[in-house]
Design a protein around this nucleic acid. Structure first.
Length: 902
RNA sequence: GGGCGGAUAGCUCAGUAGGUUAGAGCGCCUCCCUUACAAGGAGGAGGUCAUGGGUUCGAGUCCCGUUCCGCCCA
């Protein structure tokens, strides 16, 4: 009995790693149709996903687990459908994150990167990357990701760097990249610019500070002004009021004195000022506020920067120079209070810009940076979605995408970091011209001078990520991979990076390749804890996917993520759910053990043509229905629902009913046993295929055992197309149109199930010991023949004593002292004197009768109304059938009650 | 301020072709170690599908309004 040689419990820990190694070694992760090989056939359409590149120095979290599960599901599905399938893995260099990590390490040695110099520092980062860079990819393997590792890419690889260089130069040449002095978001901690998207705004309690702007020519008069950031007073270059504001019109054109510094600045009028806010007079700090900067441009105001890169006050701040921005706020305010310039303070809720990374307060800063002129790119990207060339799932995100694309601002792409793609721009020390080149230049393109130096900054990591779908395939080279695999098929990622990444890939893809980089965008939700809270270290509710896999297996985690989620919606993950799915994997394993064992209990070959039993036909019909459902759901990206249906079929129909009945059929021996084993093998085989994209390990392992057992038994158990080398490349089950006989068999089997449940129910109610067999008489009218054929099964499943079991068409003797059930018009009598209490029996029958009568009344009303005329006939017919059955049931119940009354 | 999502069993959620007795997992109650599986089996309790209207023969599902929770953008 080979089935029983398998362990009783599915032991994932012994199976996962070797299985993954085997898949990879066998080359199953590579597309079977490879444009680099001689037998390549370009006529097959490939299915391609490029992985959302994780941070090269990162470690696995549930977000990774989610996208790997989701993408591996799609990849395995398409691979099994026979499409040449490619999933390109890789990582990105994560400029800021990685640089921070290495700087932190340096700090332990008491070093700063400036002390090492750029080259030495970069050498250290690369060393770091070599050392820790493959942790994340190893962890991704652990999840079962079937990506083609021979094509792995890294954003700082030579090839991808070339793509970045090419992209930059092209945009520059088209005038879509420019350098300019702009108000940007500055991260004082990181000492670099960040993009708009990297800033988060949070409402926080703060203070509104009211103070006096004293008139230069009249020390006793002042304009009251309110601010949330008093330290910026040091950089004020005007006070602005609304042109129509009569309170202040007399002051316009005059000068006021900057507190403490005593600089004289003008009072101006500008419609931007909101007379309702604060005092209605606005202090203008052009170098430290985007709106003030605009005002300054309109009025030609002086622009005074008062802060260093680290947000300390610089020499422009006079006595406050050297103070941190918040220390300065306190000190200045105290000094102003002492000088009698303070009016009052009010609690005020402010909107604080914070760095998405680290959370420090972002400082608006006037600075020279590189920008992408985004409008033309965005317009094309907008059209691609509007015209349906790219579809976003779930659909509601298209609106969000439109909204962002329509209001997009130029993208600040320069970062004051060292780790990244250095901006390919050289400045001439002689003529001052810029040279922008694909190859590092040796001299100035304008004057020929050799005295040139490269821009110090690097590009935003997302700039290189935006090229990912094609840079990974060799672009700008027209490589065989690029020509065959691009455009890719589906881009799958979390909705939180729709703008950061997806939108930019679409813009860049269209701009550089002239094609949409993918036809479908599938967005998954974020993973939260079991009560919907965001996971965070401070809350202590972080679930480590590696730990979960160690405890419950990769399949359990994957199945939980896949089945517990719906497109675009967040998922609340609890370990209880993972545990339930571990149990499912174990259920599959054990059903497999049974089927494999069954092969030993049947003959090698049948004597005659199959005589399918009701159960055989039923499970087959249900399986066919499942195939149709799964196909429909996969096509509409409803993977979770598909998984749920497979789960339900496997457990509640195949395992709970068919396997139980198969035990009886196998015991019959002969052809019955053979065809039962055959059905078991076929259904299990099909289920394993359907489940494989969800739970690759347990299915592959079990399928291997099944294949071996079946092969060693007889070729008669092989699938039509023969046994594939491995489940991962076995054929996906294709659905067929429903056949005539299916409905009838399903209906008949439902009746069997109903009867069995009714008897089990009454057994429990009457506390009949499980082992006790009970006598039973069924009176089944037109169903009698059908039920007779199922005698054995009914007896076994309901615990009926075979030699006291009678199925009749009609009953002529009067009912005696017995329990009576009526199931869909079929009478079931259990003559057990010791169990019967006539009063109880009467009550039970009355309750059931009243329920039936309620249904009859409901259905009669329904069928008497407009429903009968308006609803489709098959729906009406269904209700008529129901009514008929209830009437019959009610009639039987009345007879019983009458008999009881005699 | 604009947009989006959610509200279904004690908890977490499915229910995306509208079909008339609303499902799962977990939790709870009863019983059972029956040779696939106690990570299991059998039975059971538990829901006016947030709310008010509308469309329809028929609404958890479609439309409009309201309330609460969450997210995104400005």
């Amino acid at each position: 009995m080979p089935g029983y040689n398998l362990p009783k419990t599915y032991d994932f820990s012994a199976i996962e790693e070797p299985l993954y190694a085997w898949w990879e070694e066998k080359g199953f992760f590579k597309p079977w149709n490879d444009p680099n090989l001689p037998n390549f056939d370009p006529s097959h359409k490939p299915f391609v996903i490029s992985i959302p590149p994780p941070n090269v120095t990162g470690e696995l979290h549930l977000g990774h687990a989610m996208f790997v599960a989701m993408e591996d599901l799609m990849i395995r599905y398409h691979r099994m459908k026979g499409e040449p399938t490619l999933w390109i893995p890789g990582t990105d260099h994560a400029g800021i994150a990685t640089q921070l990590l290495v700087e932190r390490e340096l700090a332990k040695e008491g070093l700063r990167r400036e002390q090492l110099g750029r080259d030495e520092f970069l050498r250290r980062v690369w060393a770091w990357k070599e050392k820790y860079g493959n942790i994340i990819t190893r962890q991704i393997r652990r999840l079962g990701a079937s990506c083609d590792w021979s094509r792995e890419r890294f954003t700082l690889d030579a090839g991808l760097s070339r793509a970045v260089r090419e992209a930059f130069v092209r945009l520059y040449e088209k005038g879509l990249i420019y350098r300019g002095l702009r108000m940007i978001n500055w991260s004082p901690g990181l000492r670099t610019a960040v993009s708009d998207l990297e800033v988060e705004y949070s409402e926080e309690p703060g203070t509104l500070y009211y103070f006096k702007y004293v008139l230069a020519d009249d020390p006793n008069t002042y304009i009251p002004v309110a601010t949330t950031r008093p330290e910026t007073i040091l950089g004020d270059t005007a006070v602005a009021v609304h042109p129509q504001d009569e309170r202040y019109s007399a002051f316009v054109g005059r000068k006021v004195r900057v507190p403490i510094l005593n600089r004289l600045i003008p009072v101006i009028s500008d419609p931007y000022v909101d007379p309702q806010f604060g005092t209605g007079a606005l202090k203008v700090t052009p170098a430290h506020d985007p709106n003030d900067y605009q005002i300054a441009l309109r009025h030609n105001l002086e622009i005074i920067n008062i802060m260093t890169e680290e947000a300390r006050i610089n020499e422009a701040g006079g006595p406050y120079a050297g103070l941190d921005r918040f220390e300065c706020r306190k000190k200045l305010w105290e000094d102003m209070r002492a000088a009698g310039l303070v009016i009052k303070e009010e609690p005020y809720t402010l909107t604080v810009p914070r760095s998405q990374r680290g959370g420090e307060i972002i400082e608006p800063r006037l600075s020279e940076q590189w920008f992408v002129r985004i409008k033309p790119l965005a317009e094309a990207a907008l059209r691609a979605v509007q015209e349906g060339r790219i579809r976003i799932i779930p659909e509601r995100f298209t609106k969000i995408y439109y909204n962002w694309m329509e209001n997009i601002q130029d993208w600040c792409i320069s970062r004051q970091l060292w780790w990244g793609h250095r901006i390919p721009v050289w400045y001439c020390d002689d003529c001052g011209a810029m040279t922008v080149a694909r190859e590092d230049p040796t001299h100035c393109a304008t004057c020929g001078s050799m005295r040139i130096h490269q821009d110090e900054d690097v590009l935003d990591t997302w700039f290189s990520s935006g090229l990912w779908p094609f840079s990974t395939l060799g672009w700008p080279e027209e490589t065989p991979d690029y020509k065959y695999f691009y455009p890719t098929s589906v881009l799958e990622t979390g909705y939180d990076i729709l703008f950061f990444w997806v939108a930019r890939m679409i813009m860049f893809g269209l701009e550089f390749t002239g094609r949409e980089p993918f036809h479908t965008v599938y967005l998954h939700g974020l993973i939260r804890d079991e009560h919907g809270q965001k996971m965070s270290k401070t809350k202590g509710n972080v679930i480590d996917p590696l730990e979960v896999m160690n405890q419950m297996g990769t399949d359990a985690l994957r199945f939980t993520l896949l089945v517990g989620s719906t497109p675009g919606n967040d998922i609340n993950l609890s370990l209880k759910k993972v545990e339930a799915n571990r149990n499912f994997a174990n259920k599959v394993w054990n059903a497999g053990r049974f089927v494999i064992g069954a092969l030993d209990m049947c003959p090698l070959a049948p004597q005659g043509a199959p005589q399918w039993t009701l159960a055989d036909s039923w499970i087959w019909a249900r399986l066919q229905n499942l195939l149709r459902e799964v196909e429909r759901l996969f096509e509409s990206y409803q993977f979770g629902e598909a998984g749920r249906q497979i789960y339900d079929f496997f457990w509640s129909e195949f395992a709970d009913w068919y396997i139980e009945i198969a035990k009886i059929q196998l015991a019959e021996g002969g052809d019955r046993a053979f065809y039962t084993a055959y059905t078991l093998v076929r259904v299990l085989d099909t289920c394993l295929r359907l489940l494989h994209p969800f739970t690759p390990f347990v299915t592959e392992a079990l399928w291997g055992h099944l294949k071996k057992a079946a092969q060693s038994k007889s070729e008669a158990f092989a699938p039509k197309e023969g046994w594939a080398e491995a489940l991962i490349i076995a054929r996906w089950p294709e659905p067929k149109a429903a056949e005539e006989w299916e409905e009838q068999k399903v209906a008949e089997f439902s009746l069997i199930q109903e009867i069995v449940r009714a008897i089990r129910n009454v057994r429990t109610e009457k506390k009949v010991p499980p082992a006790r067999k009970i006598p039973t008489v069924m009176v089944a009218g037109e169903h009698a023949d059908m039920l007779k054929e199922q005698t054995q099964i009914l007896a076994a499943l309901a615990g009926i004593a075979s030699d006291h079991f009678h199925i009749l068409e009609k009953r002529d003797t009067k009912p005696g002292n017995e329990i009576t059930l009526v199931v869909s018009g079929i009478e079931v009598y259990i003559p057990l004197a010791d169990l019967v209490d006539p009063a109880e029996e009467r009550t039970r029958l009355e309750t059931e009768l009243s329920e039936a009568e309620q249904q009859i009344a409901r259905l009669e009303a329904l069928l008497a109304g407009p429903f009968a005329q308006r609803a489709p006939s098959h729906i009406v017919e269904k209700e008529r059938q129901k009514l008929e059955t209830f009437r019959e049931t009610a009639q039987r119940l009345r007879e019983q009650l009458q008999a009881l009354g005699e």
